[in-house]
Design a protein around this nucleic acid. Structure first.
Length: 836
RNA sequence: GCCCAGGUGGCGGAAUGGUUUACGCGAUAGUCUCAAAAACUAUUGGUCGCAAGACCAUGUGGGUUCGAAUCCCACCCUGGGCACCA
């Protein structure tokens, strides 16, 4: 650059350096020979909306700062990017714009990649992944087949979530509060035959694996809750079929099985409650039940899950007319049907007693007798429990419970189950909230599920040599809402031959869930140049699992759970040798705009482009990182960004103006205070970046700059090493200006181009950190009353320090005439005089 | 209802039990300029006071401590997750 031109022109230098970096491939590590591999991953975007907004940029920048930091610390950092462009998000956007998804994808890709270039991340642009390209989804289909062959993909007819607006089924994880994750429509139940992945088989490993990974706690908690493990027992209740012997018909073995986590309350169980779903099965056997019972069951089944599961709703139910026998005490228990019992959890039946809020409320309403069997030891409380004035749900001491009376709940749980187990009436049981992953989508924009149905041979996978099953370009791609994909209108697509018997057969016309695309993309990144395998085993071994993963918490029980499942499956299949894909996961915060959440409906979504054009990416990056703690986010304000821009410009001015005097390597312009500050700053910035406390890292850089600038203004000289350190420490945040200034500082050095981003991260020397003098705060009765300057040599000499205090008139005013009771001295920090 | 995170100036936010308000924004005054912008310099928690200074301030109320934004107890508010899961 022209050294006489001293104005900071970000758009010029940013484009220049981006081109040089890409040409020199400084961000493209050799995947075969990297010595210190560090896989720095961020969640790839859905290129569905109008473009990247500042929230995305905040996340990507924060991840990139960490990657650049690791690179300067000597790691071979691999930081790939791609587009999660298949799926409902992109297709819904295409439907909105009225452009064909294929066309829309091309535009979105161009726009997103342009934006992603402009923010100055150290992406490896030679290895992008786009989930909608056949060279990628070929392998997504291949993975489906591997799961099918392993018995982990199966078809079943079941009541599934159906979004009437997106016109497709959804997985449980994609239903938020009964509404579609994408469009917020209320989800319906439909009985459809669909493809599922057996994620429930991995429930326990998904749970226990959490303790082995360094993830932000809230995501682990969310996954634990979602998996929802409950340990308890399965207990059999015989149906009392006297006098005619037919009451138990319709129940397997004339028994009702019940799951409970509280076998300790069994002696107090006075009735059973079964779900409408279970009751329907019972009625379908043709039993003559009262009309009242039949209509209750039918009405309940019609209600949406949402309406049924509202907690404040008053409980309803109906007596079946039949009785069961309590296996603990042989008492007769009426069997009720109630819609607060969930058909799909446990066995769809419970026993009810006085120690459960819901049972208690239900029994009171229908005047069913209750019998408490737990007390607390507190007389007042116990009186209320026994008089049924309160419902006690905690652990207590058993009474009226046969030989188990007097035991604690915890002891009784084990012993009662063991006792019943001997009589074959109970066994230990673990239940999970997690359900199998529904994979089918009745949409167009996704990878066709690679399965073929033959009347004779049933479901057959597409032979691997025939992959990919290409998604055809069709005009009528809009979802139909009939429970079938638009591809079902295209015989040229679905008509085929059975791979086994070669007879006429039909392809599956549903496509797979977007979350399957993203459940394995981190494996593909290391193999984009290899087309004969999904992922190259050697490279996977070298680079995975991912060292650092950064993304949004909204994926806690979606992408982050599915990816773990897929990794465990691949590990079991012997294709990889680890179970957890992401060693470390951190969630970025949310960027809000002037105190309000950004949303399209509010019209306050900030697109970074105009700010980058005006201030440069370095400023926008620094601003976003400075706005607040990275994991909490921050508030986007135009005035704030100008403040950060001022800081960037000041650095430019200081470093480019000292350039003339830095050509020699002598000690001119050195200063011991500046030395100490420099080492302190290196230490602070290094520790802050490691903890993702980017906002305080930048604050430290500002303080450091302020001192350098003050020194330079005063003495008109400044040693180059201070500026070099400043620029190096600023490099992860503002890569372009740092590169420009770094090259400027090294201009006289011969040799080939060494980017600042491949230079070494500064090291601090602990010897410089200690000052020769310390300020000790003086307090009287804990109140600040002054301070004294103490030489390092006498820092641990309390007597000398008290002498120094006595010389301080300001402080002595507060001590005159008072009796000192105690003096507390904290070395090098504070001395507190306690007076009467 | 349960779990998690949080509540500090006009604002975003700092603070291993030890100077509350680092850093930045904004505001006020000034320098430069014909002027403005930019840039630079100074001031900037509140109340009272001419001043010296005093007192009050980290959601509320208690407690522990020589000393609490920080630890403990109770409560209030905000954001997020889970939720009739037996």
């Amino acid at each position: 650059m022209n050294s006489k031109d001293n104005t900071y022109n970000p758009s010029l230098i940013e484009k220049k350096w981006q081109a040089i970096w890409e040409k020199n491939k400084i961000y493209s590590p050799d995947l075969n020979s990297g010595e210190l591999p560090f896989y720095n991953l961020m969640m790839f975007p859905y290129p569905s909306a109008e473009g990247m907004h500042v929230g995305n940029m905040h996340a990507f920048t924060g991840a990139d700062v960490y990657g650049r930091f690791k690179r300067m610390q000597g790691n071979d950092v691999f930081e790939p990017i791609g587009l999660d462009g298949f799926g409902i998000h992109s297709e819904n956007y295409a439907l909105k714009t009225g452009r064909h998804p294929v066309e829309q994808a091309k535009t979105s890709e161009m726009n997103f990649y342009r934006q992603l270039h402009s923010i100055g991340n150290s992406f490896d642009w030679t290895r992008t992944v786009e989930t909608y390209k056949p060279e990628y989804y070929k392998w997504t289909q291949w993975l489906f087949i591997q799961l099918f062959k392993a018995g982990l993909a199966y078809r079943k007819k079941a009541p599934v979530n159906f979004c009437p607006s997106c016109k497709t089924v959804l997985s449980d994880e994609q239903v938020i509060d009964g509404c579609c994750e994408r469009c917020n429509s209320v989800v319906e139940k439909r009985d459809l035959e669909q493809w599922f992945f057996k994620i429930t088989k991995y429930a326990d490993r998904l749970l226990s694996g959490l303790s082995k990974i360094d993830w932000v706690e809230k995501v682990k908690t969310a996954q634990r809750n979602w998996i929802g493990k409950s340990e308890g027992a399965l207990i059999k209740f015989k149906i009392d079929d006297s006098p005619h012997g037919e009451a138990g018909l319709g129940f397997k073995n004339k028994e009702i099985e019940v799951f409970t986590t509280r076998p300790d309350t069994l002696f107090g169980a006075t009735f059973l409650v079964i779900s409408p779903e279970l009751a329907q099965k019972w009625l379908s056997v043709g039993r003559k039940a009262p009309e009242k019972v039949k209509s209750y069951v039918q009405n309940s089944l019609k209600l949406a899950d949402m309406d049924r599961s509202k907690e404040d709703r008053e409980k309803t139910g109906v007596f079946t007319g039949i009785y069961a026998i309590n296996p603990a005490n042989q008492e007769k228990m009426p069997v009720w049907i109630a819609d607060f019992i969930i058909g799909s959890y446990g066995t769809g039946a419970v026993f009810a007693d006085a120690h459960d809020e819901r049972d208690f409320e239900f029994a009171k309403k229908y005047k069913i007798p209750l019998k408490p069997t737990l007390k607390t030891g507190n007389r007042d409380l116990d009186e209320k429990i026994i008089n049924l004035e309160m419902c006690f749900t905690g652990d207590g001491i058993l009474f009226d419970s046969g030989e188990f009376s007097g035991l604690t709940s915890a002891e009784a749980r084990k012993k009662i189950v063991a006792w019943l187990n001997e009589k074959a009436q109970a066994k230990q049981q673990v239940n999970y909230h997690l359900r199998d992953w529904l994979i089918s989508r009745q949409r167009y924009w996704g990878p066709p599920i690679p399965m073929i149905y033959c009347e004779k041979c049933q479901w057959q996978p597409v032979p691997e040599k025939d992959l990919p099953v290409l998604l055809p370009y069709i005009k009528d791609y809009k979802p139909m809402g009939t429970g079938k994909s638009p591809l079902a209108n295209h015989p040229e697509f679905y008509k085929t031959n059975c791979p086994k018997c070669n007879g006429a057969a039909k392809r599956e016309t549903d496509v797979s869930d977007t979350f399957l695309d993203s459940a394995w993309y981190f494996l593909r990144y290391v193999s984009t140049d290899i087309d004969n395998t999904a992922f190259d085993a050697k490279r996977v071994k070298k680079w995975l699992p991912v060292n650092m993963y950064i993304g949004g918490v909204e994926h806690s029980v979606l992408h982050l759970l599915y990816s773990r499942f897929m990794t465990m499956v691949l590990s079991d299949l012997g294709l990889i040798s680890f179970e957890e894909p992401f060693t470390k996961f951190r969630a970025h915060g949310l960027i809000i705009k002037d105190g309000a959440k950004m949303s399209k409906s509010k019209g306050n979504v900030v697109i970074p482009d105009e700010y980058i054009r005006k201030f440069g990416a370095d400023t926008v990056r620094s601003y976003l990182m400075f706005a607040g703690p990275f994991e909490m986010g921050g508030d986007f304000r135009d005035t704030g960004i100008e403040g950060t821009h001022r800081f960037v410009k000041r650095i430019w001015r200081l470093v480019s103006s000292i350039k003339q005097q830095v050509l020699s390597m002598d000690k001119k312009g050195e200063n011991s205070d500046l030395d100490r500050l420099m080492h302190k700053t290196i230490k602070a910035v290094t520790e802050d970046i490691e903890k993702l406390n980017y906002n305080t890292a930048i604050a430290h850089l500002m303080e450091y700059y302020n001192e350098l600038s003050a020194f330079y203004t005063k003495y008109k000289i400044l040693n180059a090493k201070y500026c070099k350190t400043l620029v190096l420490l600023f490099a992860p945040f503002a890569p372009h200006i740092s590169e420009e200034l770094y090259q400027l500082l090294n201009e006289n050095k011969a040799g080939k181009f060494l980017s600042i981003h491949n230079s070494s991260w500064p090291q601090y020397d602990p010897r410089f950190l200690e000052a020769s003098q310390f300020m000790v705060v003086v307090q009287v009765n804990g109140k600040l009353r002054g301070n004294i300057i103490v030489d390092k040599e006498i820092l641990n000499n309390q007597v000398r320090i008290e002498e120094l205090v006595r010389q301080n008139q300001r402080v002595m005013r507060y001590l005159e005439g008072k009796q000192i009771r105690k003096v507390i001295y904290v070395e090098g920090r504070v001395i507190n005089f306690v007076v009467e």
